[in-house]
Design a protein around this nucleic acid. Structure first.
Length: 286
DNA sequence: CGATCTACCTGATGGC
DNA sequence: TGCCATCAGGTAGATC
């Protein structure tokens, strides 16, 4: 019998990249006719009216990703930033489809439907900025670290990053100013894959361990993207079309407390680290 | 500099 | 059955 599923959501790089690829196909080239915003949480960095007026009558020109941020280019030169945080979803839906509960932003195109932002916990956000004002509008964008999938680096460069910080490996992996895109799920999976404990010091790694850690970062994220990201038991993460991702079935440790390690048959253990759940195999990781 | 804690928020779940 | 407490976690900001 499987243990009860805990509620998990949290889009990280693979889930955001999954949505980005779909936005490229489904949204780029479309012109915005109207924008509706409800509540005060999703659009909170700028007045709603400004957010809306900068979107209406523009056309989407591209879909990029910076860490966990989605960046939709507009033909006005502005950029629409979206962060899904814990429970945000972007959905492409027909005008006639019923509004789901917690739909906070609805972008209606001149033709063919709507792009909707749904977010029960309202941690997610959207804002419109541009390259000239981004430093004041969203300073955290400028401090994002390298994107481990978009900007491959050598393991030696990765080793330099490890030495710059004096912290524990899990804190290092989830620090968005070092590498952008890794959160609680994928840091645990990466650490298992590389055979390293989450609380090892960044400065304690041997050359071989540095290489193994970097290889695992790239490999795990790449595989997760290939499988459309992770959807856990409560099916919180869905893509632009409402479909779940497959990658959770490949998880080696995350959400597998008290289950057998798939590598050594030891027992997966759950610990508390930085106020968060951390899963690891005490026999495979050191 | 790093570590730790809190706030933000809803929904699911467990105990009584 | 219902009520309350707890937990889930990305990130900013405060504090040590």
């Amino acid at each position: 019998m499987w243990p009860e599923g805990e509620s998990e959501l949290m889009p990280e790089l693979p889930e955001v990249e999954t949505v980005r690829r779909q936005l490229e196909r489904e949204v780029v080239g479309k012109r915005i006719k109207t924008v509706e915003v409800s509540g005060t949480r999703t659009v909170r960095r700028q007045p709603k009216k400004q957010f809306i007026s900068r979107l209406v009558d523009t056309k989407f020109t591209g879909a990029r990703r910076q860490g966990k941020f989605l960046v939709l280019g507009l033909d006005s030169g502005d950029l629409l930033y979206v962060h899904l945080r814990m429970s945000g979803q972007l959905r492409r839906q027909a005008v006639k489809e019923p509004m789901e509960k917690h739909t906070h932003v609805v972008i209606t195109f001149t033709q063919h439907g709507q792009l909707r932002f749904i977010d029960p916990r309202t941690f997610g956000e959207m804002f419109v900025t541009n390259p000239e004002t981004i430093a004041e509008d969203a300073p955290e964008i400028l401090t994002l670290g390298i994107d481990p999938l978009d900007e491959p680096i050598s393991w030696r460069t990765f080793g330099q990053l490890l030495l710059v910080r004096d912290t524990k490996l899990k804190s290092f992996l989830t620090d968005q100013t070092v590498m952008a895109g890794i959160g609680n799920i994928y840091s645990d999976e990466i650490l298992f894959e590389s055979g390293l404990m989450y609380d090892r010091s960044t400065r304690s790694l041997s050359t071989m361990e540095v290489r193994r850690l970097y290889r695992s970062v790239v490999e795990i994220l790449h595989d997760a993207v290939k499988h459309g990201g992770s959807t856990l038991d409560d099916e919180q993460f869905v893509d632009l079309h409402g479909k779940t991702g497959d990658y959770a079935s490949f998880h080696q440790v995350y959400n597998r407390e008290k289950q057998a390690c798939r590598r050594c048959r030891g027992i997966i253990t759950k610990a508390r680290f930085s106020q968060r759940s951390t899963y690891f195999c005490p026999d495979c990781q050191m």
